[in-house]
Simulated assay, not measured.
Amino acid sequence: MGMPLVITCGEPAGIGPELVLMLAARQAISWVAIADSQLMHERARAIGVDVDIVALAPGDPIPEPRVGRLPLWPVALRRPCCPGVLDAANAAYVLETLDLAVKACLDGHAAAMVTAPLHKGVIRDAGFADFTGHTEYLRDACGVDDVVMMLATDNALHGRLAGQPLPLRVALATTHLPLSDVAAALTQESLERVLRILAADLTRWFGIRSPRIAVCGLNPHAGEGGHLGREEIEVISPVLERLRGEGLMLDGPLPADTLFTPRHLDDVDAVLAMYHDQGLPVLKYSGFGSAANITLGLPLVRTSVDHGTALDLAGRGVADPGSLAVAIAVAADMVVHQAAGRA
């Protein structure tokens, strides 16, 4: 059997642990979870699922897949956890699970990593003041300068289905910033780096030979010729023109309020939004619960769910594991595409 995918279970007080348990209880899995063993036993009892948890170490062979069996790389909680109740003492535990997953991927013990949701606020409250999210943490852990956050609906990843919403892949030029900081953070240099990563990784991880990318403007109506802002004229358009000259297929800058329509999206492989809430509300409206979050620009495959910790649902067994299942499937597909590209 090849290297497994590893799944970090995220915030222990949230729904991440039980989403992992639900999938293991329903299907024969060939991946391994990273979490506290006692936490997983307690959460399995709380939600009423029967799962045989098999403790392993990185590099150990994964047992034959069987419904109801969950291979686990144990990491110890700092304090016992109650569903729905955050505890800053366990922030270091959450980060340790990420560090173990990254190390396993880089050391050749895992093929890819998938992350269940964490809680940014409690990690910052624990003293990790610079923590802004999975994406930036993994960038620093892997020692790369730039990464790109991209979310994609299931039908964008596995083919268009009749009667379904348009497939969407939405990447972000800036990620977790206050809106007041976005314009200053958007430079020609940063935008060029993002577009190069996006185009290269659509080919590397998804097998799209010449991806077409639609690029949003920053301002309403894409600046309306400079009357509503000059970022399109001074930052975005010069970068697009320069990269088009190198052969990249880039449309824009386009007004975001009309870009997310069938006429514009029909032949587009991805949309680049300038900031978090410009593109992601549209994507989540189209495919919430059946989309994956993908980090581009890393030396490893990383995907995640499209939702948060849902503390109000934790421990009740009513959360939907659909997005986690999509994230796992996407990670597996990305590994296959990379292997095919190397062949």
Rank of each mutant, 00 (worst) to 15 (best):
D277N: 14
D333I: 05
G322W: 12
R316Q: 15
D251V: 09
L272C: 05
G289S: 11
L254F: 14
G252M: 08
H276E: 00
A332P: 01
G287L: 06
A314F: 06
T258L: 04
S323M: 01
S290N: 13
D320W: 06
A314V: 10
I328W: 07
V271T: 03
A310T: 07
M274H: 08
A314W: 06
G315L: 06
G315M: 05
L300V: 12
M249N: 15
G287C: 02
Q278H: 03
S290E: 12
L259W: 08
D312K: 11
G297D: 11
P262I: 10
G297S: 10
R316I: 09
L250C: 13
S286H: 13
A291N: 02
V301P: 05
A270R: 01
A314M: 03
P253C: 12
D277T: 14
M249I: 11
L313E: 12
T295S: 14
V330A: 14
P255A: 15
A327G: 05
Y285A: 15
I328H: 03
G317M: 07
A327T: 04
A291S: 15
G322E: 14
P321L: 12
I328F: 12
A319V: 13
A273C: 00
G308K: 07
L265E: 02
G315P: 10
A310G: 13
R302I: 03
L298F: 11
V271D: 05
V326A: 10
D306F: 11
V318C: 10
G297M: 04
D257V: 08
N293H: 04
L272W: 03
A310I: 07
V326C: 10
A327N: 08
V326T: 10
A270M: 01
R302V: 00
A256D: 10
L300T: 00
H307T: 02
V305P: 00
D320P: 09
I328T: 08
A273D: 04
Q278F: 09
L311R: 07
D320G: 14
V326K: 04
L311N: 13
S286A: 15
D312Y: 12
G297R: 08
G315H: 09
V268G: 09
P255E: 12
G252S: 06
